[in-house]
Amino acid sequence: MSGFFSAFTEANLGYLMGGLGITVGVSIISVVLSLIFGSIIGIVFFEKIPYFSSFVGTINNIVRNLPLLLIIFFTYFALPQLGLHLPIFWATVVAMTVFQSAMLAEIVRGGLEAVDVGQFEGARANGLTNMQTMWHIVLPQAYKKMIPPIISQLISLVKDTSLASGIVLAELTYRGQIIYAQNTNFIVPVLVVMTLVYFLLNYGLSLIAKWFDHKLA
């Protein structure tokens, strides 16, 4: 058992926690950005603008149906071929945002479609413009229903950040790999601790989602 804990010198623990910071940072920036882009795309779907909506829909479907790992590799390794060089951190954020926006767009569309049509009619008959109806009446109701699925997406994001270890982003999983590369006896202890950290973070998020679910039901 002492062997188990010998992996966690103060330096190693600090190094791992620094990785957790990067994991959380990438996740938060990506979720905020993808919420913005996902909302715009979701509204475009919902408004059924001739040609444009179905065009955006096709692109969205393509992105949604690709492995995130491929999108990450593409952003970091293939875009430089087009002259677009992104640092690792921002390449990860861009890849995550593209992928998650496509996911969230579907959630936003679903949320909008779940709002009673009477809410639109009431607001229009009341003299509000389309934009005012969306902003003051429909979106606030739709977002309330979307909180639990949005948190689920955040959980996916936190987990998926580990894929960026493939492009050597020094997040939690990558740093774990660095530690056990020094001493193979550290493999199991490090994996166990990483499991625990991810689990606590994500399980905590899922409890928040559950709390909202109960409150909204």
């Binding site: 009673d116 009477g118 809410q119 009619e121 009431g122 607001a123 229009r124 008959a125 009341n126 003299g127 003051h136 009446i137 606030p140 109701q141 309330k144």
Partner: peptide, 17 residues
């Protein structure tokens, strides 16, 4: 619509206000 109001069968009050 500014000058013509409407009252609906199912009220259509704003649920979030």
């Amino acid at each position: 619509r500014k000058n013509v109001g409407m009252v609906f069968q199912h009220f259509n009050l704003y649920n979030n206000k």
